[in-house]
Design a protein around this nucleic acid. Structure first.
Lengths: 343, 343
DNA sequence: AGACCGCCTGTTAGCGTTATCGCCTGAGGG
DNA sequence: CCCTCAGGCGATAACGCTAACAGGCGGTCT
């Protein structure tokens, strides 16, 4: 049952291959075969070995195995702030998928968003000889860092933009933003203001592109996008500026948290949502349906992204000519924070 | 620069210790010493070796090192749903602290909250020979699983209750809940209703104890606690029941997300917050200050908890007689969701 | 002057596993 | 009857690193 407690080997230490072999009356090699290629051993012998394995509570030493095979069964995930809803969910789903396939996941958070930082993080994992790495760092500097990685190490990225040098799993940010913007225009709003994510964030850029694209295609005025930092606080601060401008009737926020801040700022300024101003968010966090009013938003399926990322990595590790990109389509979830423009 | 790309050894593969030794004109052992005990090598020799290390872009093979030293430089974190705010933040801070001390962190999420599940997760990590494990699973079944773990493997827990069999870092849930409850009573409310977390969750229990303790000490009626599942949705559903009861004037929710659901339910029922009903949450997520109204809540310093957990583990790994518990004091943050009871 | 000590470096022997090759046995074919 | 061949298993040699000991060299103490 327990890794190092019960079933100690004869030496008083955890049992090793040799102990199992001795107990089963076979050679070490046979035990190894039972564990790695069971059908190459006679059934009777196999049973005897397995009995010994159970009796001694033998667990293979992964370091020794790794040393000789070169593979570790460990994947690395390099990620920015895993406290954020998106990265946290993605990480969680990568880990789940990996676990089902027998992999363990090691993480390396980035302290700074510097190109060196990403390389350093990949190195930390590389030094632990991971079999592959998923990079969750939707940041320009990260994309830059992706260009200078060990070519032997299978690497895939998440949300690393439309022209990512490594295979990437991502939500179609442009499509999502376009959907949100079109929704607002269809309600009769003249144009849509945007509270975007931080400069240099790739998904922030993608959302801006999608938003701007629709406005331009429809021949609407394109206000300068405001830039926050994803936090509710920044949404609030920018929201106060928008609240002062009576011409603002529709706001598309780069994520739900900033949208929450915008909602609060509008409320404080006495502008009603959705009667006076419509607001759309991005992400669809579990909370968003309970904001006041419940938030219309763009749902990102992070679970899907995580799974895709893992399978892309699996392909790369198998040496297959992996697809270069898997796009996940986001959905617009219409709630009560958006309504018809007043005439 | 890159782990396996540039600076290949003479063999066309990544450089190994021997390659560095050959290039520097010393023995392998000297190279090893330069890396592990630099002051035991003459400065001049050291420089020569380091130059060779750089030239070949040598990175020690962690598997080989682990095989012979028995230590891996990897810590494991076993955690429930790392999507939840608390566990996610704790994990993040553990990783940060670990990184600063030169450790890598591997994660193992729990799929189910079963006693076997925790043991299985610890095993997965143990099989990868981690040096120690932090368990973030504030659940009764986890506490149970803690009793049957490899005694040789240093293990500490987070939020595993006041009578945890292993060293534990935790927020003083009782104190936090008591503070919230006293705050509401001090505003003149006759008693306080509670929307608690799921049964079997240890921190949910702690909060109930703290809440109940204050009510009993003050001789107030103690309503049956309602139990949600931490989600805003469950808070909303339970909130609707509370909203129907006109005697309810003060609600203490087990976390901010459920509090959000309660706020929404009250609003829909036409009961104003804080004029008719006061609401307190628990956690103080970044969003909470922007709910409507901004939520009075109990702030948990998860960063501090993560750091404590890591240092407890470090002590245990060093074989020191570690403290058995580190309590972090939560703070009451008063915002606008609580107000004086109406007479 | 000889014994001794400390500093620096090298030699040897594993750590626990799997790759590789080779041996043995028994069945089947000429 | 001998040869071949395949299945099943064992002996040996790595994998890359460090622990433990050994030795050489210069200086210090008696």
């Amino acid at each position: 049952m327990a890794t190092r407690s019960e079933g100690r080997g004869p030496r008083g230490r955890p049992a090793v291959l040799g102990d199992v072999a001795a107990l089963a009356g076979v050679s070490a090699m046979t035990v190894s075969r039972v564990l790695n290629a069971p059908d190459r051993v006679r059934a009777e012998t196999r049973e005897r070995v397995l009995a010994a394995v159970r009796e001694l509570d033998y667990w293979p030493n992964s370091a020794a195995r790794r040393l000789v095979t070169g593979r570790s069964g460990v994947l690395g995930v390099v990620s920015i702030d895993t406290t954020l809803y998106g990265p946290a969910t993605t990480l969680y789903c990568i880990e789940q998928a990996a676990r089902l396939s027998g992999y363990t996941v090691s993480i390396a958070s980035l302290s700074t968003l510097h190109r060196r930082s990403i390389q350093e993080a990949v190195h930390r994992l590389g030094a632990q000889s991971v079999d592959g790495v998923v990079i969750v760092a939707p940041h320009e500097s990260a994309a830059d860092g992706l260009l200078h990685l060990p070519p032997d190490l299978p690497v895939v990225a998440v949300d690393a933009g439309y022209d990512c040098p490594v295979p990437v799993a991502m939500v179609d940010q442009r499509a999502g933003a376009a959907r949100a913007t079109r929704h607002l225009l269809s309600l009769g709003h003249e144009t849509v203001w945007h509270v975007g994510g931080p400069v240099d964030w790739i998904d922030a850029s993608g959302r801006i592109e999608g938003w701007r694209g629709v406005l331009e295609a429809e021949g609407r005025p394109v206000p300068d996008p405001l830039r926050g930092d994803w936090s509710p606080r920044s949404g609030y601060q920018l929201g106060r500026r928008l609240a002062e401008d009576p011409s603002v009737t529709a706001v598309f926020a780069g994520n739900d948290q900033m949208a929450l801040g915008v909602l609060r700022a509008l409320r404080e300024a006495g502008r009603r949502v959705p009667e006076d101003v419509s607001v759309v968010g991005f992400d669809d966090m579990p909370e968003s349906a309970y904001y006041c009013p419940p938030l219309t938003t763009v749902r990102q399926d992070f679970r899907e992204v995580g799974r895709h990322a893992f399978h892309l990595l699996l392909d790369r590790m198998a040496g297959e000519p992996a697809e270069s990109r898997r796009l996940v389509e986001p959905d617009l979830v219409v709630r009560e924070s958006t309504g018809a423009a007043r005439r």
